[in-house]
Amino acid sequence: MALIELRGVSGGYRSQPVFGPLDLIIPAGSRLALLGGNGSGKTTLLKVLLGLRAPLTGEVRWQDRPLASYPLAERARFAAYVPQQHRTGFGFFAEDIVAMGSDAGLIRPLPEERIARARAALAELGQEKLARRRMNELSGGQQQLVLLARALAQHTPVIVLDEPTNHLDWGHQHRLLALIHRLGDQGRTLIFSTHHPDHARRIADRCLLLREGALLADAACRDCLTDDSLSTLYPVDF
């Protein structure tokens, strides 16, 4: 069964299409990488399939049901989102931010358990030491890890990550990719955008290549991440 399905979906801003229309079926347990140049529509596509932006045309379906029919709380228990850019106001502690993931989609928040769950998520990333640090005093990479911990604390079957390795140092990139791999082994469905074909090769089982909003390729990584397709995707000579 398709966990997530896009039927003739296009997305963009104020009737200015950024991508699509495209059809897509994402089965449960997929590890899907999304590649494309700057402005090719990756982020918009991720937001539309999460329901954070309404599609311009077509329909997004989750588990054979129109996404539009899902209440927000139910969506938050189905898919977690790690954004590319984050801005936070006031001096929230990192564990407060992660605990927002623990509470997400619950009618009654977890008074005792929420912080424990937040700390467990930070520990999974080896970042317990960030718990009592203020979010606005962390580096870009550390913030990225906190946001990833928030998504883990959300305990969802689907995790969507927008360029998750963007601000990370080489060591953290390595650990993050290992973690994503592990989450996939646990049966979670992972959808992520990246600028690194190597990262896609390492952890994804399927790649979507997006060029100026159109689908250039949709296949297993080893089949579509070839020199030819990459030189079409990013106009460079190898």
Partner: peptide, 20 residues
């Protein structure tokens, strides 16, 4: 109060965390 906390994360993140 709890929802206000989530709103400080920005509109799209708040929505992804289940807050209208």
């Amino acid at each position: 109060g709890g929802r206000l906390n989530v709103l400080t994360q920005g509109d799209e993140e708040a929505k992804s965390l289940g807050v209208s």
